[in-house]
């Protein structure tokens, strides 16, 4: 029997997201996709499936979802309080959702974007080669109460992964990019020394960085012919304020870019809550590419461990192997 998730209550911005689209950049539509791409790989590892499958991205808070038909889910990204029918669910883990179960996901405790993955992925319509909503581009929309989502089916539950810390701001590495050289050395040095605070007006398109003191503009209102924007570009607007451009960035821009956040650190910007401190640090292009390649190579190798539950709640303690790492990893799938 195929399962579906019924949205009974949706947080302020719950959208279907995957790894985004390729091929529409030339027509002004940026790749888009999940704000925290690592979270998609974690969800895929927990469910034992492909990272390209679609999940729900929940900005700030989740919602209430009712399962029609049993399915498996995983919860990743910004930790949120989650429970099903009064039972608390571990974050960064996969679980069984019984037919009729009601899953409630509250506000983010740290970070912004939490993810609800389902076994087999969310099977919403493909548009231009992907299922991702692209809100800035006018493609798709945030979910609302009454929406019904088809679930692909399959997957495994009872798995847990350690969560890579990326929810509290911190150090963000940047490579020089197309216009870095037009910024004086002094401006770049001051940019690296400045502690920025993420502005509350951030969205899937970009995040404004606030700081005390002088801005980072270039003398004489530099005129740059419009050129491509890539996710992670740090655009300096006319008043000298940096904006980090994120998943749904515009595809071209005429403001100079002081540098580009490397892909492994972009989720740190996206996930930082308003007011969180961020600091930018230049690395060479070669170093940035090396760090990015290492990060990408590690993602498919994520190895979840069996989720060892509170023994008091286990009905048949002796049937579980409680030493992590020695089981096949699927012995908790048959939860009663």
């Amino acid at each position: 029997m195929s399962a579906s998730l019924h949205v009974e209550k949706a947080g302020p911005q719950v959208t279907v997201q995957d790894l985004g689209r390729s091929g529409a950049l030339a027509f002004g539509l940026s790749r888009g996709g999940a704000m925290d791409r690592m979270a998609l790989f974690e969800g895929a590892a927990l469910l034992g499936q492909d990272a390209g499958l679609a999940a729900l991205e929940m900005a700030g808070a989740g919602g209430t979802f009712r399962a029609e038909g049993a399915c498996r889910i995983a919860l990743t990204g910004a930790p949120m309080r989650a429970q099903t029918d009064g039972r608390a669910l571990t974050w960064n883990a996969s679980h069984e959702l019984e037919d009729g179960a009601v899953l409630e996901i509250g506000a983010a405790e740290r970070g912004i974007y939490g993810y609800l993955h389902v076994g087999g992925g969310i099977e919403s319509d493909m548009v231009l080669g992907a299922r991702s909503a692209h809100l800035a581009g006018g493609l798709g929309r945030a979910l609302a109460a009454g929406d019904v989502l088809s679930v692909g089916g399959g997957g495994r539950s009872g798995q847990i992964l350690p969560s890579e810390e990326r929810f509290g701001g911190g150090r963000v590495r940047v490579v020089p990019s197309l216009q870095t050289a037009v910024f004086p050395d002094e401006t770049r040095a001051r940019f690296e020394k400045t502690e920025f605070r993420k502005d509350a007006r951030a969205n899937r398109q970009g995040a404004r960085m606030d700081a005390e003191g002088e801005g980072f503009g270039v003398d004489g209102g530099l005129h740059v012919v419009s050129e491509v924007i890539v996710p992670g570009d740090i655009q300096i607007t006319g008043d000298g304020t940096p904006f980090v451009l994120l998943a749904e960035s515009q595809t071209t821009g005429g403001y100079p870019r002081i540098g580009t956040v490397i892909p492994p650190d972009l989720a740190r910007v996206a996930q930082a809550q308003p007011g969180a401190a961020l600091r930018f640090e230049f690395v060479t292009l070669e170093e940035g590419r090396r760090l990015t390649a290492a990060w990408r190579e590690a993602r498919p190798g994520l190895k979840p461990q069996p989720l060892v539950r509170d023994p008091a709640k286990m009905t048949d303690l002796m049937s579980y192997t409680l030493i992590g790492g020695v089981t096949a990893g699927d012995d908790l799938d048959q939860e009663s």
Partner: peptide
Amino acid sequence: TIGFAPGQPY
């Protein structure tokens, strides 16, 4: 060029 936003011409 088409850019900035989907389908938007300069």
